[in-house]
Design a protein around this nucleic acid. Structure first.
Length: 284
DNA sequence: GCCCAGGAGTGTG
DNA sequence: CACACTCATGGG
C-alpha cells in the first residue's frame, strides 16, 4: 500500500544514512527500507513529499513516519534561531533537509549502548542480528526491534553470539534494570533529569546519554559530543576541555536547539575532513 | 595481518 | 578533576 505525505524541507538520504538510526538500507537508488515500530517501510523522496510503501493499509503509518521524521519541526525557525551564531550560519544551510529522527526510546538506548567503540557498519550488523534473533517477525520479511522482555530472556552468552563482545553484559544489564513502564515514565522527565537517569544505567556514559535523550526521547537541547564535535568545537570556537565543559559551552551557545546544531557541526566537520583528505591526495 | 572504531568503566595521581 | 589503561571483535 502506498501513502504520501508532505515534509519540507527534507533530505531523506542525509537523514537516514548518517548514523542517527542504524536500520535503514538503500536497496536501490533513492529507495530507503527500514523498520519503524512494527512496520517495514520503504521511503522515497520526491522533492518535498515522501512516498511511503508499507505492507498495510493502515493510515496510521503516515502518522508514524511523520513522527519519526519529526515533520512538525519548523526547520526554518530552528535555523533562524541558530543563525544568531555566525560560525554556524555559513555551514548549516546546505543541511536544511537534515532532520533529527525520533526513534523508539528502547531501540535508541540499546543501539547507542552498542555503538560504543565500534564503527557504523559493525553497529548495524549487531543490531541486525539482535533483530533477526529476538525481534518479532513482521510483514515484509523483517523483524521488529526486540522488546525488553524478549531481549531479557537471552543469556549474556546468547547476546555475545550476536557479535556484541563486551557490550553483551551492558545490554543484559539494561534488560534487568529497566521495565517498559519505567521507560515510559522517563518520557515525562525534562532533559537534565532524563540525562541523569540514563547515566545511572551501566554502560551508559555522557555521550550515549545525550544521544538517547536527543534521538530517543526527542530532547532537542541535548548535544552529544563525539570526536568529531570535539574537533569542530576546537577548530571553530577554540574551546576544549572535559565533556561537561563542552556541554555547558554548547548549551549557552546553541540553547534549546543544540541538537540540530550538533548535527550541522558533525556533518560539517566530517565533510571538512573529507575535503582535506581529497586535497592532500591530489597533491601527491 | 594490522589498525582502530559516533565510549565507558575502573583505577590512579 | 584529569589522565591512562582495558574492554571483545569485526570492518576497512
Amino acid at each position: 500500500m502506498m501513502f504520501e505525505t508532505d515534509i519540507r524541507p527534507l533530505d531523506l538520504t542525509l537523514t537516514l544514512d548518517c548514523g542517527q538510526a542504524f536500520r535503514w538500507k538503500e536497496l536501490e537508488q533513492g529507495f530507503w527500507t527500514g523498520v519503524v515500530g512494527k512496520h517495514m517501510l520503504t521511503l522515497r523522496q520526491s522533492s518535498g513529499s515522501v512516498a511511503i510503501n508499507a505492507c498495510t493499509d493502515d493510515q496510521n503509518v503516515v502518522r508514524l513516519v511523520r513522527g519519526y521524521l519529526r515533520a512538525d519541526d519548523d526547520i526554518a525557525r530552528i535555523q533562524r534561531a541558530l543563525a544568531k551564531d555566525q560560525t554556524l550560519t555559513r555551514g548549516m544551510k546546505r543541511y536544511r533537509g537534515l532532520r533529527i529522527v525520533k526513534m523508539d526510546e528502547w531501540e535508541c538506548l540499546v543501539s547507542y549502548t552498542l555503538a560504543t567503540y565500534a564503527n557504523i557498519p559493525r553497529i548495524k550488523k549487531m543490531i541486525d542480528r539482535l533483530c533477526t534473533d529476538y525481534g518479532e517477525p513482521i510483514r515484509g520479511g523483517e523483524h521488529a526491534f526486540p522488546t525488553i522482555r524478549r531481549l531479557g530472556e537471552a543469556s549474556e552468552k546468547d547476546l555475545e553470539k550476536c557479535g556484541l563482545g563486551y557490550r553483551a553484559k551492558y545490554v543484559a544489564g539494561l534488560c534487568e534494570s529497566l521495565t517498559p513502564n519505567e521507560l515510559k515514565s522517563m518520557t515525562r522527565l525534562e532533559y537534565p533529569d532524563l540525562k541523569d537517569r540514563l547515566l545511572e544505567l551501566h554502560g551508559v556514559g555522557e555521550k550515549v546519554s545525550d544521544c538517547v535523550s536527543l534521538f530517543g526521547f526527542g530532547k532537542l537541547e541535548a548535544f552529544p559530543i563525539d570526536v568529531w564535535i570535539v574537533r569542530a568545537l576546537g577548530r571553530l570556537y577554540h574551546v576544549k576541555g572535559s565533556y561537561r565543559k563542552l556541554s555547558e559551552f554548547a548549551f549557552e551557545r546553541f540553547g534549546e536547539y543544540a541538537g540540530y546544531a550538533q548535527e550541522y557541526l558533525y556533518f560539517n566537520e566530517r565533510s571538512a575532513a573529507h575535503e582535506n583528505a581529497c586535497a592532500f591526495s591530489e597533491v601527491r
